[in-house]
Design a protein around this nucleic acid. Structure first.
Length: 909
RNA sequence: GCACGGAUAGCUCAGUGGUAGAGCGGCUCGCUUACACCGAGUUGGUCGGGGGUUCGAAUCCCUCUCCGUGUACCA
């Protein structure tokens, strides 16, 4: 067996193993291996932005996917974790345009033109596109990189085109002049989902206007956007509003622009809420969705006073033209004030839609866009409602359902160049839609590209080589084996953008749901609970953390703090804790290794002999098992069961907590320490047997840990020689293919002679040790000292030795007739009374005080239980089980109290 | 406005009717031959407030407060 290094060096180990896994093609999925005995497990990565860099959200998300994938491999499944990146149309084009502008290459995208700019973006993509992929590799992601996809690959592009044409032919895609969300920064339309309503502090401006037909009548109007007055083409009042109804049909004089104070009509419209503002609404059909609708109903003129970049244009009048919209607002107020028509301005809070990407207020804008009536809504809604597809946590199902219920058509066209170009061509009055350009001269293609999500929604099958040709697709082994996928792991922030749409696409083109389970991660926040963001600078670079602590540590730290469905408070301490845990694991393995060199009986590293099957139990001799051995085997059983159950239910933090507790608190703190009684002794047979138990536990623990800590477990798996003698594909080559641990079943437990009560036996011993240690600490003893145990019943010598070692006692005398001198500190334990004889060094008063405190506690508990049991109201109504418990409690406290009283009496004598 | 989630020890969280828990931190000891990235001990809580149901409530019901998320055409 190769000797383990003294210190663990994660950087070297992680790089080495990742390369080895790649070289050995460990992550590559082969559909031909899928069979009834070897089911498929598949998961598609939420494709990160191709120009992005790894952030903590990616770490969380991809660690989870990796855990699921690795566990599935260990369960003997054929695993496909399909990776790739997203072209992220608007975001990527923005980044490249900005860079080019900074470099002084261009002032505007038109300086380059469409083709040249797209070329530049491709160059950018080729240069930066693999950064995030490399970062995922550093994290240990076990994706099948041979299948890496990009949403703008030729094959993928073909899928997008095919889908567009299909929907167009089905009549679900149409072009129309509508009010859309316009981003004045990116100069494109956005979908409703890309607009974030943001509460905004502003002002409500009240101004008055003169009724043309009744010059003495003035109406007061309240608005938040006075700069759009030049675009007003009516004012509206509610026809039921008695204050104004008689004015309907008359006109008011629009105050701006000054050079064109045109009369505009007063219309009656139910939309107007007469409780709000003044009950008089200025109607600007070009710049407000609701106003646009009013305009439609009353056939109003539409005056667009803004350039696409939200600078006021000539129609706004000479005073406002050329001003940015917020400057224009100030100027408009000034003008109204000069006119003497400003009444007042009041602070006002309203919701303003912000562009999700550009972070600027969007403008409702009338423009020609492409829209999609969503397909397969019914199936998509039902599949989740009926629980055929499961959401974790399931409350997202309601959110999903609600969105689908009130769903609006999707604006899918974008006025940028980086993206899938709309496959529609025009020639005069003719329109052609097809996957390639039409025959003949004079056709021009629609300049718009498609929303990035219009490609992402095909991800689960477009990445698997879908062609839309039924025959071809049914002969496609990848699709056949791995679609529908098993799990999807993503953030709830893209439940509408992506998840819901993928479900629709799955039904529409594959006639089947795209995944069976969706796990929604929480959002990573900083210690103060704020979202992580670049501008706050509170987002650590995962790569720095990996350098500092290792990828395993980062993974473990993040998973430990990520309860199901809850936001995560990130604290670097958790990563540090992950590193410490790896170190502990490393040292525990080293401890085992150091024992073998001193061992007498030759035992193979895994406690196995040549040609044995994988099961190591055969090497453990049941007759030689100590109570500690039985205890740790039972605790291991519990840990395996708990971790397995937690993973089934996507409770990753519970799984990590169990692993931590089992390995650190149970295995290292108790079992290893107790086993030293044997390992430092002279019974060679027992030593060998203890080592076999240790190997059994370690080999199981490493496997249990592997999905969480892939690197260090692999290193130790080989370092400890646990891989030796295993078939290549079952742990010989890599721990990632070793079988997922199973708890010992009833037969195996019987074989080892392990009974459930064995756990309590060992626990009593450990409790005794705890109490003894407590005595030592109370009296500030930090050296090896003599303890005396006055046992309740006879104890085997081995058990006494274990207690001695755990207590660090020198010696531990067992004396059933021990008569302590007055004032000897003592503790009542499950195994008897433990004394710490200090030969007159102790303070009788102090000991009396200590015992007195214990007694007071016992008395108060006794009182409580007695009172309860004396209460007829209680005893008559309570179930027998509870009554028994209380009865037992009563007896326990009575006994304890009696003994404490005795001790106190002895101290006072 | 509506819906959902959350509020338990200094911090992060378990705990869905029967003696309030864990990890981390804090404090006190200790370089005991795997590990100081460690070990031992110990300290922390009228379970957000108020009502109610019950023999018994962190847990069930009502109500309020605060935080978060989603959603809604109020200029």
């Amino acid at each position: 067996m190769p000797e383990l290094e003294k210190t663990y060096t994660p950087a070297e180990v992680e790089a080495r193993w990742y390369q080895r896994w790649l070289d050995d093609k460990c992550f590559e999925a082969d559909p031909s291996r899928v069979s009834e005995k070897r089911p498929a497990y598949s998961i598609v990565i939420p494709p990160p932005n191709v120009t992005g860099v790894l952030h903590m959200g990616h770490v969380l998300n991809n660690t989870i996917q990796d855990i699921l994938s690795r566990r599935a491999r260990m369960q003997g499944k054929e695993v496909l974790w399909l990776p790739g990146t997203d072209h992220a149309g608007i975001a990527t084009q923005n980044v490249v345009e900005k860079t080019l502008k900074k470099q002084g290459v261009i002032k505007h995208r038109d300086d380059l033109g469409r083709e040249k700019l797209v070329e530049k973006i491709w160059e950018w993509k080729d240069k930066h596109g693999d950064i995030i992929i490399d970062q995922l590799k550093k994290l240990g992601a076990s994706c099948d990189w041979s299948r890496q996809r990009f949403t703008f690959d030729d094959d993928y592009n073909a899928c997008v085109m095919r889908v567009f044409v299909d929907l167009y032919k089905k009549g679900l895609i149409y072009r129309g002049r509508r009010m859309v969300n316009w981003c004045p920064s990116s100069l494109t339309a956005l979908s409703d989902e890309e607009v974030i309503p943001t509460p905004q502090k502003g002002f409500m401006y009240h101004f008055k206007v003169q009724v043309v037909e009744e010059p003495d009548t003035w109406l007061e109007i309240a608005t938040t956007r006075p700069e759009t007055i030049p675009g007003d083409t009516a004012v509206a009042v509610n026809p039921k509003d008695e204050r104004y109804a008689h004015l309907i049909g008359k006109h008011i004089k629009r105050p701006l622009p000054l050079e064109n104070q045109a009369p505009i009509p007063i219309v009656g419209d139910d939309h107007v809420d007469f409780e709000f503002g003044t009950g008089v609404l200025k109607v600007t059909p070009a710049h407000d969705k609701a106003d646009f609708e009013i305009g439609q109903r009353h056939n109003l003129e539409i005056i667009d006073v803004l350039h696409p970049n939200a600078i006021l244009n000539e129609l706004a009048g000479k005073d406002l033209a050329g001003l940015e919209r917020f400057e224009g607002r100030k100027k408009a107020v000034e003008l109204l004030t000069e006119l003497g028509v400003m009444v007042k301005e009041e602070p006002h809070q309203n919701n303003v839609g912000y562009s999700e990407r550009a972070g600027v207020p969007i403008e409702p804008r009338l423009s020609e866009q492409w829209f999609l009536k969503y397909p397969s809504i019914k199936e998509s809604q039902d599949v989740v409602a009926k629980g055929e597809m499961k959401f974790y946590p399931d409350r997202w199902a309601k959110v999903y359902d609600h969105w689908l219920t009130g769903i609006q058509d999707w604006c899918i066209s974008r006025q940028v160049w980086w993206g899938h170009r709309i496959p529609v061509w025009y020639r005069g009055e003719e329109t052609y839609c097809g996957t390639s350009a039409p025959e003949g001269e004079g056709w021009t293609q629609d300049p718009d590209v498609l929303d990035t999500w219009f490609s992402s929604w095909l991800w689960p099958f477009a990445t698997m080589g879908w062609t839309g040709d039924k025959e071809k697709d049914s002969a496609n082994p990848t699709l056949k084996a791995f679609y529908p996928t098993t799990d999807l792991v993503t953030g709830p922030d893209i439940i509408f953008f992506w998840v819901a749409r993928m479900i629709m696409a799955g039904f529409e083109w594959m006639s089947e749901l795209p995944f069976k389970n969706v796990y929604y991660t929480g959002i990573i926040r900083d210690k103060q609970g704020r979202k992580m963001s670049k501008s706050l600078g509170n987002s650590p670079d995962p790569l720095d953390l990996i350098t500092k602590y290792s990828a395993d540590a980062l993974r473990f730290g993040i998973m430990r703090s990520a309860p199901l469905g809850q936001d995560i408070r990130y604290d670097e301490q958790n990563v540090e804790l992950g590193r410490n845990f790896c170190t502990k694991l490393w040292n525990a393995a080293r401890f085992r290794q150091m024992q073998s060199s001193t061992g007498f009986q030759p035992v193979s590293p895994d406690g196995r002999v040549e040609n044995s099957s994988y099961i190591t139990e055969a090497e453990i001799s049941p007759t030689l098992l100590s109570s500690d051995d039985k205890w740790i085997l039972l605790r291991l059983n519990t840990a395996i069961a708990e971790v397995s159950a937690a993973l089934e239910e996507y409770r990753f933090s519970d799984a990590t907590a169990t692993l931590y507790r089992f390995f650190w608190s149970e295995y290292c703190d108790w079992y290893i320490e107790a086993s030293k009684a044997v390992l430092q002794g002279s019974d060679e047979k027992r030593k060998a047997n203890t080592l076999a138990v240790i190997d059994f536990v370690l080999s199981h623990t490493l496997r249990l840990f592997h999905p969480f800590l892939p690197f260090i477990t692999e290193e130790l798996w080989h370092g400890m020689g646990f891989n030796a003698d295993l078939p290549e594909n079952q742990g010989g080559k890599s721990i990632m293919f070793a079988p997922w641990p199973k708890p010992l079943d009833a037969d195996e437990l019987a074989h080892f002679g392990i009974l459930p009560e064995d756990e309590a036996t060992a626990n009593q011993k450990y409790e005794t040790v705890n109490l003894g240690r407590g005595l030592k600490s109370t009296f500030n003893i930090n050296k090896k000292v003599r303890f005396v145990l006055k046992p309740n019943q006879e104890l085997p010598g081995h058990e006494i030795e274990v207690i001695r070692i755990l207590l660090n006692a020198e010696p531990l005398d067992v004396d059933a007739s021990f008569a302590p001198t007055k004032g000897t500190p003592s503790a009542l334990t499950p195994l008897g009374t433990v004394f710490l004889p200090l030969d007159g060094l102790i303070d009788v008063e102090a000991e009396r005080a200590r015992v007195g405190k214990d007694l007071a506690k016992a008395e108060s508990e006794l009182e409580k239980v007695t009172a309860k049991l004396a209460d007829e109201n209680f005893t008559s109504k309570v179930p027998q089980k509870v009554l028994d418990e209380h009865q037992q409690r009563l007896t326990d406290w009575q006994e304890k109290s009696a003994k404490l009283k005795e001790m106190l009496a002895a101290l006072s004598a």
